[in-house]
Amino acid sequence: MRRSNWLYVPAGLTYLFLYLPIAVLVVMSFNAADTPYRLDGFGTAWYGKLFADRAVREGLVNTLIVAAGATALSTVLGTLLAVGLARYTRSKLLDAIAVAPAVLPDIVLAIGLLAFYTAVQFTLGRHSILLAHAVFGTAFVAAVVRTRLAHVDGSLEEASRDLGATPLSTFARITLPSLAPGIIAGALLAFSLSIDEFVIAFFTTGPDNPTLPIVIYSMVRFGVTPEINALATLLLAVSFTFVLIAQRLSRLTESI
């Protein structure tokens, strides 16, 4: 059948709709002048200015600490949760509850977490954001590892036991390696979600040590500068890379 060429028109418009704002952002970040909405020459001055900004640097460090910690926690918990769910229960409800934090509206999770922290009189700071991010991170990792598990032949573990490996040795030598692509994909996903998460971080942050999205928000309140554009472009590059790697790994998952 001949493909209708005119279908490229709406497709192209849709992509334009999706990526035009981002394209504008990236282009403007290389603006030479101090005009956030009009391109006046080309330069990387704003990137230099960005790196000189102490608030931004500290925000970046905070974000990386939170993201690394939340990723570590959610990778371990999410993997164990996925394996446990697959192995020890057939309950669809438990399954659904495990991944629900991934699809709950952020604002719900944010209010809930803040209410909880207040109720137990938990101090707020990087650690409270880290735990909050681990909540949805765990759900994402569990969901990704669960998908991977469905593709792994269950008799591999039995074969390992049969050949004389203890349950623990089987988990380390057979279960983990065969889940590795899923675990790595889940971790990357949790990391990239954490570094640009705003709503939950905003609710659960303390007086000091704001994460980068919060820093950006407070900068934007006094108007958008090309500096912000540069920062957003960098964040975009990082997120994009991570999502691509995660996607690549989960495709690998299906092919095995």
Binding site: L156, E158, S160, R161, D162, L163, G164, T166
Partner: peptide, 20 residues
């Protein structure tokens, strides 16, 4: 006797070879 200590081995229908 647990499976990993039995002097018994099983060849699985799916072969269950370790892919890695």
């Amino acid at each position: 006797v647990p499976p990993h200590r039995r002097p018994v081995n099983l060849m699985f229908q799916s072969y269950a070879l370790f892919p890695h």
